[in-house]
Amino acid sequence: MRIGLRRMRAALSLFKNMLRDRQVKVLKRDLKWLTEQLGPARDFDVFVSETLTPYRAKHPDWDEFEILEHDLKRTRNAGFATARAAAESERFRSLLLDCALWLLDGDWRNDTDALTQALRKRPARAFAQNELARRVRKVSKRARKLERLDGRKRHKLRIAAKKVRYGREFFATLCCERRKAGRKLGRALKELQGELGILNDIRVHLERAREFASAGKAAKMAFAIGCLTGREETSVSDVLTKALAAGKRLQKAA
């Protein structure tokens, strides 16, 4: 569901110059709301499955990790409950219906504004080439400054790279790129997004750890969280190096 939401929001971003009606603003607001309802479930699930469980397997005798695992799973289950409640809500049902009706016959299809109409009448291939090239240049430019970006700006860069990847998938049948150049560009974008994703997970895990610490958790749990986040922090330099290399490959491929 989160991936579907990301793809939908990416499509709205790609075509934003043609989508200026009030309906779009409401849809974007509700799509963002639903994404936020699913976030904690995903974050804690990744923390448990990809960080805590492997580390605990290496240290089976440390009861600190057993205590932490129990508490994190309880928090993850609360996140699942939040996501489930959102998916069972009236707001969710209304969102699905509103999206379907908007796609079929929304204001965007009937807008009489001359500029909007002209944009809609452009050949799809020309639009896709220009839009994707513009976004690739923007991602490439920001990737050059990767070392100077803080965690949240790196996350925004990751989202921008993801939107380009989604856009390339959306327009794949239009053959906007030469095959060999397209493969190189695709690999570079995927690598950049992957490394930035690891960096973002490390940032999110650190934030979650701070939440636990500020909630007055037991000393053993604080120790276990410190071990996990400290272990991840040591990998930041290597991951950042890989991300920078991916950014350079992207610049060559763009």
Rank of each mutant, 00 (worst) to 15 (best):
L104T: 08
K121N: 14
K242Y: 12
T229N: 00
I3K: 07
L146I: 14
L52Y: 07
L250D: 01
V24P: 02
V136P: 02
A224G: 10
R183D: 08
M8C: 04
I225F: 01
V164T: 05
D43F: 05
F80K: 07
L95P: 00
Q129C: 08
K58M: 02
I198Y: 15
R187T: 02
A161M: 05
R29W: 00
F212M: 03
N130T: 14
K138C: 12
F65D: 04
A118M: 00
C227I: 00
L72C: 04
V46P: 00
R158C: 05
L68T: 11
L5D: 01
E207M: 05
S94V: 04
R42N: 11
R249I: 03
A124W: 08
R42T: 13
Q193D: 13
L31Y: 02
H59I: 04
L115Q: 10
S140C: 13
E50D: 15
G230Q: 03
E147R: 15
A86P: 10
Q251C: 14
C99T: 12
A218Q: 13
L174H: 07
H155R: 14
T229R: 05
E233G: 14
Y166W: 13
R165N: 10
A218D: 15
N17A: 14
E211Q: 15
L103A: 09
A133W: 01
T51L: 03
R122V: 01
R148G: 11
F127T: 04
K156I: 08
A83V: 09
A245F: 06
Q37P: 03
A78C: 06
S13G: 12
E211N: 06
R42H: 11
L52I: 01
R2S: 14
G230P: 13
K138I: 03
D105M: 08
R203S: 01
G4E: 15
K153P: 00
F171G: 10
L96Q: 05
K28Y: 09
L31N: 03
G79C: 05
I159S: 11
R134P: 04
Y166K: 02
K252N: 12
N110A: 04
D45F: 01
L157D: 01
K162C: 12
A224Y: 00
A188G: 07
R2C: 11
G182A: 07
A253H: 02
E69D: 11
T229C: 15
A161K: 12
D30V: 08
I225R: 06
Q251A: 15
L115K: 10
K138H: 03
C227N: 14
S13V: 09
K252T: 06
R154Q: 05
T234E: 13
T234Y: 01
L5G: 04
E233W: 03
A124D: 13
A161T: 14
G226W: 00
G230Y: 00
K190R: 11
A172N: 10
A254S: 10
F44R: 10
S49G: 09
L31A: 07
R168T: 11
I225T: 07
V24D: 02
F92W: 11
T229V: 11
